[in-house]
Structure formats: structure tokens, C-alpha cells
Amino acid sequence: MKGVLLINLGSPDTPNPKDVKRYLAEFLMDERVIDVPKWLRTFLVKGIILNTRPKKSAKAYQKIWWDEGSPLIIISERFQEKIQARAKVPVALGMRYGSMSIQKGLQELHDKGVDEVLVVPLYPHYAMSSYETVVVKTKEEQQAHFPNMELTIMPPFYKHPDYIRVLSEKIKSYIKDIDYDHILFSYHGIPERHIRKSDPTKSHCKIDGSCCNTPSKAHDYCYRHQCFETTKLVGEYLELDKDTFSNSFQSRLGGDPWLKPYTDKEFERFPQEGKKNLVVITPAFVADCLETLEEIAMEGEEEFKEAGGEQYQHIPCLNDDDDWVKVMTRWINEWSVTSQPKEEITA
């Protein structure tokens, strides 16, 4: 029997410092998030970060927390419920970090008699710290607890026409009645070294002005290329002038070089160039979370206006929009009747 496991990032159980600390410990100790030797990661996380960051992060979570709970969890549950109402197979939900675990999601499917699972990482783009860690963790849980289950992994859908269409139409619905100077596609940031580590050729990704535009097998695993490709395709769909939109990367940490340009620096730069009416979209996420709701929608607007900006429009993620639900449901239903191998899945 077939079934589907949707997987997103996760969330603390509450916005209290104790629960945030527990969540951050699991998240930051992931070797694909902080990719340094375990002894150093342990020192950094348990010796330094967890002694200072939980209180600050808890305040941020409190700013965006809903009465029903974590926005990311609530949105993901609504998305799963809408899909289940339309899907031909059981659909469960799991999170990479936190109490709503991947193991629990697989167990839910197992209890319903499912022995063939389509794993859907809810990340449009490939990155070590998002898509890859979800896939690796799911395989570990399957091997440890559900050895008779077969897994099929949905590949990143960053350039799939259906995804580009629903993302573009969402943007169109927000910009059609407003005057704007620029649209910023702000993606989650990652260290530059992650790009090189993910490069199967070990030579293509130079993070320069040409490698992302030069065809290569590396692009199947290159977060930077895939982000640029999403932006380019949306720009073409919406017929945007090339000088009216651009990319940036948010949420950098530490002193190592991360993907550029940095979103906060763009917020400072745009008003000085006369771009005072800004629209911001965050396509690295399909569901709004702390990073989109607090860092971009709240702090981003404050930074932009402090730099001289006037109008700031943050566009929500696809969340549980009906068009996005229909797309994911169709992908799932096509898989459920065709048993396509990974490389042939419609998405």
C-alpha cells in the first residue's frame, strides 16, 4: 500500500526559552547545518550558542506565535489536511526537528498498512542543511524502524512549471494593484562552502559570475544555481523587466563567507538608489516560519524604512493556498498510480 510523508523544518513546542533551547540543540547539532567536526560543533552549540541564543530566539518566536501554536506547524497541518481530502493515498506529516518527528510520520503511515512511501521534502531547492538532511534522516529512520518500507524521494521542484506558475500567480496577485520600484527574491542563506561540498564534480562550483549559467551535473545539487533559476523563471513568467527584480540571501551566521548579496545590505542599498517602494518574496520556503515572519516581514521592513524606504510589501509563502494544494495533490496522485522511479516523478 502506498502513502506520502510531507516533511518540513519543524518548530519548538512553545515559544518559551526551555522549549526553544531543546529545539535549537537538535537543529544546530545537525552535521549538515553546522558542518564542522563533532567536537567543535558540540563546543560551539552547547558551550556557547545554547547559553545565549535561546532567550533571544524565544522573544522572536513570541512575536510571531499564533493562538493555535507555531505558524509553521499550523500551516503545514492545514496543507496536509487539504491534500489528504483530495489524495488517493494516506498522507502524513513530519518535521526534521522537534516533537513532530519523521519517525512519528512514518509510524502513522505504517499503522495504516503503508509499505511504499513517497517522501516529499517541502523545500523547492537542494541544500545540505534543508533538503539533504531531510532525505538522510528519513532513510535512517526507515532503516532503523521500518526495514520493509520502500522510499521514493521527490526531487527538488525549483523549476517545475507548476511550481513556477503558482509562485508567479501569488506574486501577481500582490503587485497588480500597487506601485513598486523593485521586487527582491530573498532566499535562505547558506555558507559558500556548502555549495562546494555539494558539488559532485568537485570542480564546477566556483561561486563566480559564470558557473551557475554554465550547464553542469553540479546544478542538480547547487542551491545557488537553483535559486537563481527560480527567480529567472518567475521573471519570465511575469514578463518583468530585468532591472526591476533581483536576488539576495538572508540569515547568515558567523564569520565565514555566505552566499551574497546579503538581504539586509540590500535593504540599506535600495533607498539610496531611489528604490523606495519594495516588494519582498521568500521562495526558499513554501510555508511561513520564523525566518519569513519575523526576520523578513518585521525586521526587514524596519531596516528598509530606517534606510529611507517608504513602502514595503512582504508576500507570504504559498502556505496552504488552494492552487498550491492542487499542484501537490496532482503530483502525489500521479505517483500513486504510476509508481514512477525517482528520476521520472512529475515534480
Score class of each variant (00 low, 15 high):
Q107Y: 01
K139N: 07
D177V: 05
T230D: 00
M128N: 11
S216R: 11
I153C: 08
S186N: 02
K55C: 05
R196H: 10
P12F: 00
R22W: 12
T346Y: 15
V117H: 00
S57K: 11
C317K: 02
L72F: 09
I48H: 02
I34R: 04
E26L: 02
L72T: 10
Y126S: 03
K56S: 09
C212Y: 14
N319E: 01
E140M: 14
E291V: 08
G10K: 07
V33N: 02
A25D: 14
R269C: 05
D162C: 12
D30E: 03
V45F: 07
S216P: 11
M298Q: 11
I315R: 01
F146S: 05
M328G: 11
Y223T: 02
S246N: 14
H145A: 09
F79W: 08
K59P: 07
L6D: 04
V117C: 03
E81A: 14
L278V: 11
K63C: 10
I48A: 09
Y223E: 04
V337W: 12
K172R: 09
I75Y: 02
I34F: 00
D321A: 11
P156S: 05
G69L: 10
L5S: 03
D19E: 12
Q313L: 15
I171G: 04
P316K: 00
S173M: 02
K88F: 07
T133S: 05
T152P: 03
I164H: 00
Y131V: 01
F267I: 06
L106C: 03
N213L: 15
E26C: 01
S57Q: 14
P71V: 01
Q142A: 15
S101A: 03
E169H: 01
Y262V: 12
E239L: 14
Q62A: 13
Y180W: 04
H125A: 04
T244A: 10
Q84N: 12
T231N: 07
T42K: 15
D220T: 07
Q272M: 12
Q62E: 15
V166Q: 07
Y123K: 00
M29K: 13
I345W: 02
T231D: 05
I73N: 12
I175M: 03
